[in-house]
Design a protein around this nucleic acid. Sequence first.
DNA 1: AGCTCGAATGAAAGCGCTTGCAAGAACCTT
DNA 2: AAGGTTCTTGCAAGCGCTTTCATTCGAGCT
Lengths: 330, 330
Amino acid sequence: MAGRNPRLDDVAAKAGVSAATVSRYLNSPEIVAAATGQRIREAIDATGYVQNLAAGALASSRSRLIAALVPDIAQSMFNDTVEAMIDELAMDGNSVMLSLTGPDNHRLAREINMALARRVDAIILTGIVSDTEMRQKLRLAGITVIETWGLPEDPIDVAIGFSHRAAGEEMARFLRQRGYRRPHLVVPRSTRSARRASGFVTRWLHDGGEEPTRLEVGVPSHFGQGRLAYRGLADLAAQPDVVVCGSDWIAQGLIVEAQAAGIRVPDQLAVTGFGNLRLAGDMRPTITSMDIDGARIAREVLRVLRARAAGEPVETRIDVGFRVIARESA
Amino acid sequence: MAGRNPRLDDVAAKAGVSAATVSRYLNSPEIVAAATGQRIREAIDATGYVQNLAAGALASSRSRLIAALVPDIAQSMFNDTVEAMIDELAMDGNSVMLSLTGPDNHRLAREINMALARRVDAIILTGIVSDTEMRQKLRLAGITVIETWGLPEDPIDVAIGFSHRAAGEEMARFLRQRGYRRPHLVVPRSTRSARRASGFVTRWLHDGGEEPTRLEVGVPSHFGQGRLAYRGLADLAAQPDVVVCGSDWIAQGLIVEAQAAGIRVPDQLAVTGFGNLRLAGDMRPTITSMDIDGARIAREVLRVLRARAAGEPVETRIDVGFRVIARESA
DNA sequence: AGCTCGAATGAAAGCGCTTGCAAGAACCTT
DNA sequence: AAGGTTCTTGCAAGCGCTTTCATTCGAGCT
């Protein structure tokens, strides 16, 4: 032992083979003879050897590290997706480096540079990178770059998501069909929310409705903002018949506040959310929301990564769609 | 250029210095002459060089990678702490590898091995590792291991947290003093929750109360469980006057369900949560909860890591305490 | 002028693994 | 039995950086 950690050589010596063979056994057991494998396994146990992936990464220029960049995890609609991804990537022997880019993607550039410096095998972005220079840098990096939760015309590499504009339009269509006439939008200050709101308004006007009122709220979205949003209604000239919230949390907070004020939802005021989080189905009343299949996004990410690893071609734009989940609140 | 990525050598050649100097400039700019630094900076820009941290890690045996193991991130009280940690560690040039160990720390062993194989500089665990063999392995790894959110007698290395038992006792004392007589406990199936419940009961009985009723619920905790918990009350022989929930989410769900059933909180039924999440203060009624300073845990983690890096000694048990936040719900 | 000392830099030996190339062994095939 | 395959395995050259040790150079001192 002599203090230092056992290396491949030590295992090799003990097993009576070369380091190369041990390396092969570790990476693709099936190509070494069964008997040899057995001896190597024993040698590993005997020495207490722990593979050094850092050295392996350098030698093979495959780090098995994947960077996932998200704005935050404290209150994020992406958490389920991120969790599913981490889970599944771990199955393939990858590790996920989670980087927080902060509100407005504040630290995006820095975190991308960090990921590149670590020679990650892939970078998974939440949302779309707008900075042209950064996009170029990522293109040149020669690794898989996946943009999720959005669907740009011209992805950096691969995009997996849906059209926020179309989702907004769909919600407008849905509410109009249900007979609502005066929607009020509660819009978090993010590009994605803005796009949905814009889609909503376009469609609403197109269908003959009047310009909806709106309130902008900060990000990340949370329960408390729903309460604020409810109070904001008092300032409106005409009261809305439905409040379209940028997230289920906001919708939930708004409902609680409305109820505390003695307002019945949806009889006196209807509410919709976005994201179809678990709580949307659990709330009283249950919340009408827009479902995005986060697990599907995670699966597609995995599929793309595997295809790339196998050298197969992949689509560059994968639309996972969305759908309105009609419940009690609207 | 010739296709391959520029290396340290390329930068060195361009700047007219040796690779060693460029390396020094990159890692501690202050030790190279100002003029040389300037030339190196220009050479880096000119070549578009991106540092290869994987190679650096191998050569220096410092990966600047830190593993954070948490049960999940979808619905977790630790998210704020984890977020604060990732944020701050990033400032120091570290990256965080986030591993999900799953309910019951299902995949804990695997993820620890992975972290060790990547030669992380430190491992931050959520909760306490119970497996003796694993504890031993971590001790021998020779890296900083921080257990958080708990305070074992004999930490693997460093523990930063609080006594769950004491927190439970404190809640019992608080409620008793407020005049409640029949508490009902809603206990998530986790070691930590169980310990708090146990502390609560001990203290409650000690103070002359009767054995509280209880309901176990699955993990991770979420809003929907609060609703279920409320319905579970119907099965009780005697109705409680206060429901002590294992998390704020459960408390929130329970309140919503109670209100939907026409029960006034806290007049007819009081409720307490745990964690003092933001929503506890935002809910109607606001939720009485137990505050754990997650940001403080993050700060202490950082302090320990820095002290270790500087070779200074550190305490092995850091108690961040807890405190009851009395609000409207109880 | 001669000497010491610190600052700045270079040379070179790794860090621990992967992998292309090649050779030996074992097994067929005709 | 010779020639051809297919498996297994070893050799050795890296992967791109860090760091020890040694060297150079100029400044400060006597």
